[in-house]
Design a protein around this nucleic acid. Sequence first.
DNA 1: ATGGACACCTGTGGGC
DNA 2: TGCCCACAGGTGTCCA
Length: 309
Amino acid sequence: MPELPEVETVRAGLAEVVAGAKVTKIKVHDARSLKRHPASSGDFVDTLTGRTIQAAVRRGKFLWLPLNRKKNEPQLALIGHLGMSGQMLLRTPGFTEDALTRVTIYLKASDGSKYELRFVDQRIFGSLAIDLMEPTADGFPGGYSGEDHSGESWVNMIPNQVAHISRDPLDPVFSVDEVLRLFKKKQSGIKRVLLDQGVLSGIGNIYADESLWLAKIHYDQPAASISKPKAKELLEHVRVVLANACEAGGTSFDEQYKNINGESGYFSISLNAYGLTGLPCKRCGRAIKRENWMNRGSHFCPSCQRLRR
DNA sequence: ATGGACACCTGTGGGC
DNA sequence: TGCCCACAGGTGTCCA
């Protein structure tokens, strides 16, 4: 599943084409892919058809496309979450069908060219929805939208369904000190805290394991027990890992993650822990271990990443 | 607050 | 070949 770098790769790819594009038609092939939409799929289609998309914005793993605003109507956005296996493919009309396409949104770009935005999702944990936007609590932009959109009405707003998600480490408004304060209040294991999107967002299983390996911290180390300098170092590793993965176009090792053109990212070649069970740790040579944890897997070096008192 | 289990789903790969 | 199990980049909710 896509974590921040994969979602950012999708956002950046979409932004070039969808800004200023008009939705001409929608086909919902599987209504389960609209589970986040509070009303019927018919309502989804009716509300979205004929709208003009303003931009592509992301916070953590959530993506949204602000829509043009009609008179006497609140600001709306098409929001998307990729879940474990969601993809957004931007195809030209007539391009070979993509298996497991759940929703197709037909677009006419500002230059007149036509596209099909295909929401593909094997496991259907992802979803699209139309959501109301509200002003951000801190008055700053709701998320990252690439170029400078300051002055546009949707900039300092955030969709209702994303309002509980904290800022991610690549957000200019992200506060290291605030997150360190929250760490000090958490007795939970650090990995659980890193994955808590209400503390900081964008991190999933891959980048949590990678950041903890770089910082030489055991996944179950209580967050509050980590010294401030060490926690700060961890957050810096998180930032660098996420930034490098964005640079590489995300991590991909199977068919489940693709950019908008259906191509894979390259970050998997720089992984140090995730999915490397049994292989020698690149620092000490001891075999990387995988343990069952929270109904998933945790990968770490049992020698470099020890649980401390 | 916090940890755990589970629900939501489909598909693939390994072992027998 | 088929069958069964483990496993997969997430989120949300309910219960002790």
